[in-house]
Amino acid sequence: MIAKLDRLSCDAAFLLNLQKAGVRFVAADGPEANELVVGIMAVVAQAERKMILTRTKAALVAAKARGVRLGKPENLSNQEAGQMRGRMQQARRAGKRFKDLAPVISAMRAEGAVSLRQIAAALNVRGIPAARGGTWSVALVRQVLAACQPVNTLTC
């Protein structure tokens, strides 16, 4: 028993397959509906769904063109707060990584690896992966050393 046929499904094939499988249902809004009426109502419901989808998409495109910022404002502020938390967490992970690498880079410098290229090569030879698992480059070593500067200029 269902309240309205269009609440069961807007997919005509689904409703017709239910009927074909022998599932019997009665809609309160049309208890006298036979298989023909149910089939017609299912096709009409599916067509209505497509029209609603088309109108909604067109309205969203028009709103964006007018410069409307879509979404609920409270959700947007939550999104901004989440992005800020993500950036802070990423900065903490990077800071920890830089602290872990500082003594290694200091030891490499003591062994004679002075240039950024030499440090990158030494890190790759030792099998120490870069932050994303790749190999070290001059640019990555430069970023690590720049991040270490405020922490401790002597150990980095």
Rank of each mutant, 00 (worst) to 15 (best):
A42V: 07
K96R: 11
A147M: 02
A146R: 10
D11G: 00
G127H: 04
I128W: 01
P31C: 09
R85N: 10
M88Q: 11
E74Q: 13
G22R: 06
L70P: 01
V141Q: 03
M84T: 15
K20F: 11
R69L: 12
R126D: 15
L36H: 04
F14I: 07
V114Y: 00
K20D: 14
R142G: 07
R132W: 03
Q143H: 10
V38I: 13
V104E: 04
T135Q: 15
A147G: 15
L36C: 02
T153D: 10
R66I: 01
F98G: 06
A3T: 14
A81P: 00
V68H: 06
A33H: 13
F98P: 00
L140C: 07
Q79P: 05
W136G: 03
L60I: 14
R93T: 10
C10R: 15
M51I: 10
A91R: 15
A58E: 11
V138E: 12
V61C: 00
L18G: 09
A139G: 11
A110I: 00
L15K: 00
V68S: 01
V151N: 07
L70R: 00
N75M: 12
M1Q: 07
G133E: 05
A47P: 05
D11P: 00
A65R: 09
D100Y: 09
V141I: 04
A130E: 13
V43L: 12
R109N: 03
W136I: 02
D11Y: 09
A62I: 02
S77E: 14
V104G: 02
I52D: 08
A47R: 13
V37R: 08
L70Q: 03
I105V: 12
Q79L: 14
N124Y: 01
P129C: 05
A139D: 12
N17S: 10
V26C: 10
A102K: 09
E74V: 11
N152S: 11
G127L: 08
R87I: 10
K96M: 14
R132G: 03
I128E: 02
V23T: 10
I2M: 03
N78Y: 15
Q149N: 08
R69P: 02
V44I: 14
A62Q: 09
I119E: 04
G134S: 03
A62N: 04
A28K: 13
A65C: 01
F14Q: 10
L101Q: 04
A47K: 07
A122M: 01
N75F: 11
F98Y: 11
